[in-house]
Simulated assay, not measured.
Amino acid sequence: MLPDICPCCSGQPYQQCCAPLHAGAPADSPKALMRSRFAAHAIKDLEYIVRSWASAARADIDREALAQWLSAAEFGQLMVRQAQGDTVEFECWYQQDGLLHHLHDLSHFVQEDGHWRYARSEPPKLKATVVGRNDRCPCGSGKKHKQCCLGAMAAAS
């Protein structure tokens, strides 16, 4: 079942936000492509994720490993830190095996055949966002972090 509100955290209806890109429409910017890739991860759209990679990197994708990883991950919050030119810095949180994971990434994009495509990533040079105990949990539950994943993270360490 597809979501009503887009999982890319834009606050827009999915059908007006990332759904057209998932159906084949070109993204108008690297930021829009990155948001649509996050949404595709959230709804487990493996085909779109693979299609949105640059052709030079697509051959190296281990589809089976990616599919297995997607099946075990639940995506929460996405925060775009900055988008300039062909790069987008973002942070996102996802749960896997009962643990909250944080990804802080600087992604690079290229244009191929009129479409923006994901080319590669590198760690950003800026500090990651710190989630405070009383902040809303980045897993997307709506609870305070201390009443949600913070306790699970402490129990696992």
Rank of each mutant, 00 (worst) to 15 (best):
M1G: 05
I5E: 06
P7W: 00
P7A: 11
P7D: 01
S10I: 00
S10C: 01
S10V: 00
S10D: 02
G11S: 04
G11Q: 07
G11P: 06
G11M: 07
Q15R: 10
C17Y: 03
C17L: 06
C17M: 05
L21G: 03
A23M: 13
A25E: 15
A25I: 09
A25H: 14
D28L: 12
D28P: 08
P30V: 06
K31E: 14
R35E: 05
S36V: 03
S36W: 00
F38R: 03
H41G: 08
A42T: 01
A42W: 02
D45R: 11
D45Q: 01
D45W: 04
Y48G: 03
Y48A: 04
I49M: 07
R51T: 05
R51S: 13
S52L: 02
W53Y: 15
W53T: 12
W53M: 06
A54N: 10
S55Q: 08
A56L: 12
A56T: 07
A56I: 14
A57L: 14
A57K: 15
A57W: 05
D60F: 12
D60H: 13
I61K: 06
R63S: 10
R63T: 12
A65M: 13
A65Y: 06
A65T: 05
A67H: 02
S71K: 12
S71I: 03
A72W: 07
A72I: 09
E74M: 10
E74Y: 11
E74F: 06
F75K: 00
G76V: 05
Q77T: 07
Q77F: 03
L78Q: 00
M79V: 15
R81L: 14
Q82L: 13
A83G: 06
G85K: 09
D86C: 09
D86Y: 07
T87L: 12
T87H: 11
F90K: 04
F90C: 02
E91R: 07
Q95I: 09
Q95V: 14
Q96A: 11
Q96V: 08
Q96R: 15
D97K: 13
D97M: 08
L100D: 00
H102W: 11
L103Q: 15
H104R: 08
H104L: 14
L106P: 01
L106S: 10
H108C: 13
H108S: 11
H108R: 15
V110N: 05
V110Y: 02
V110T: 07
E112Y: 06
E112R: 00
E112C: 01
H115L: 07
H115Q: 08
W116F: 09
A119S: 14
R120V: 04
R120W: 10
R120A: 13
S121T: 14
E122M: 05
P124K: 15
P124Q: 11
P124V: 10
K125V: 15
L126Y: 11
K127P: 14
K127C: 15
A128H: 14
V130C: 12
G132M: 09
G132Q: 14
G132V: 07
R133Q: 07
D135K: 10
D135L: 07
R136D: 10
R136L: 15
C139R: 02
C139D: 01
G140T: 00
S141A: 09
G142K: 04
G142P: 03
K144T: 00
K144G: 02
Q147N: 15
Q147I: 05
M153E: 11
A154N: 12
A154V: 14
A155E: 09
A156P: 07
